[in-house]
Design a protein around this nucleic acid. Structure first.
Lengths: 261, 261
DNA sequence: CAGTGGTCTAGACCACTCT
DNA sequence: GAGTGGTCTAGACCACTGT
């Protein structure tokens, strides 16, 4: 109960925190508030009771209320404004977050058997585009890596990558086949990659790529360009993933707070 | 200073927390630890000192250390294991997170002038695919919405959406032109959308879409399918965005902790 | 068992916003 | 000035991990 305009009212009635439950109080309150938001009892733009009042109402301390609100804020259900209050956010239904995971992990999560075929691994003289991306002199030595990524024996993606060549550190074929690109660089370079930039585009399969991916030339593909940088921001790796458009898609989904009891 | 194997050693030497700074202590410590991780002083897999020890070392309370670690964990630099400790994570250089924002907001952020042209807005009898997606009887009435999205007078994307038709609530042309799809549904439906699912794929432009987008038929496009659901998980909206492959890309980038002083 | 992170409490002071 | 969220403290108990 709390005083509003001189009257005692129950601000968010009904649910109570069960302190004997194994579900921690902050999580119980998060589910209660999520329920009120999803059911429309609290609408976008509405202000929540203050942290102090929520604490009184549910008989928990303010820090516990804050932990709960931070969970809801992380999920985008509410946002806090210092000095003003905490407000229900407009759900970001027309936004989406797509996560691209490492190929092996991603396929395993989808229940498929991932596999990598080493197509090429050789030292080349850098073509102009490659030299520019790696900040090397044109014709400088680069290590080129090309792998075909399969899942359940079906080709899904082709990986074409370039890194600076390091004569001092030899390259094991096994590592070239199974390690993620950033790990290959870490193993065969003095300077470690610490920062990455990826760009996703729609494209069409060039002849050579199409043959390896077993699709007609010109088929739609998802191109993901990858730039890797060292701590001093110098480029240490560059290249592409080319995903078959008919066999690969990215999904963005919002889920309610799960489980617990 | 702290006791390790019977010797007094300075665990993470050098930096101190300045309690007179406007930068809060938890953030100062986060930057110190981030620096040690990015510089390689702390490597992937290394364990951090315990929360208690970090508190002693930097003369702040454990809760403040925890706030700092939660910031680093959110950014993926460290991860905590109950009962074992907190460890430096392997940087997720071969993963990426792509964020698709509302078209208007996104183009404004890129410094472009967004615009929307209403191509079509009419009541149709649902084709089999549409009926299935909206859980309606085939031939039931749906409201179809088609908009061309431009930036700097160049067509960037085409939006084709379907929602249940609600005779009771009329549709204003202005709203159909400028509101996000989920808002249009919210304005013209009893049941509000609360959950969204989006799927991103590579594709090629069909004849009609290509003409509107002013690209050759068969050009590469990014297709984003959108499903909107009500609180009871019933579908309330469905459709596609079709982005020009030559004019639109998604970027994923990791940034260090910024600013403050 | 000792040591770790996970949660919680009951205070405190500050910066910010609105009236 | 009153009310809000942002930060911080110095304790506490618990669940989990290792030996």
């Amino acid at each position: 109960m709390i005083n509003v305009y001189g009257r005692q009212v129950q601000l968010l009635a009904g649910d109570k925190i069960d302190k004997n439950s194994f579900v921690p109080p902050y999580f119980q309150l998060a589910r209660i508030l999520e329920q009120k938001i999803l059911s429309g009892e609290l609408k976008a733009g509405d202000s929540l009771p203050s942290e102090t009042d929520l604490g009184k109402e549910y008989e928990i301390s303010r820090m516990t209320v804050r932990k709960c609100l931070s969970v809801l804020a992380e999920r985008g259900l509410v946002h806090a404004c210092q000095g003003r209050g905490t407000f229900v956010s407009r759900p970001a239904l027309d936004r989406a977050v797509f996560t691209l995971d490492e190929f092996h992990r991603e396929m395993q999560q989808r229940g498929l058997e991932p596999e990598a075929k080493l197509i090429a691994a050789r030292v080349l003289r850098a073509a102009p585009e490659v030299a520019a991306r790696l900040a090397l002199a044109e014709g400088g030595r680069v290590l080129h890596l090309c792998r075909l990524l399969l899942a359940g024996n079906v080709p899904i993606a082709l990986e074409r990558k370039y890194m600076r060549y390091n004569r001092g550190r030899p390259v094991l074929e096994n590592e070239l086949q199974y390690r993620a690109f950033s790990e290959v660089i870490a193993l065969h370079n003095e300077v470690l990659p610490v920062r990455s930039r990826m760009v996703l585009r729609a494209g069409t399969a060039a002849d050579g790529d199409a043959a390896l991916l077993q699709v007609p030339s010109g088929s739609p593909v998802l191109c993901v360009e990858q730039f890797l940088f060292a701590a001093d921001d110098s480029p240490v790796g560059w290249g592409f993933f080319v995903y078959r458009g008919d066999r690969y898609e990215l999904v963005s989904e919002v889920r309610p707070l799960t489980g617990g009891d």
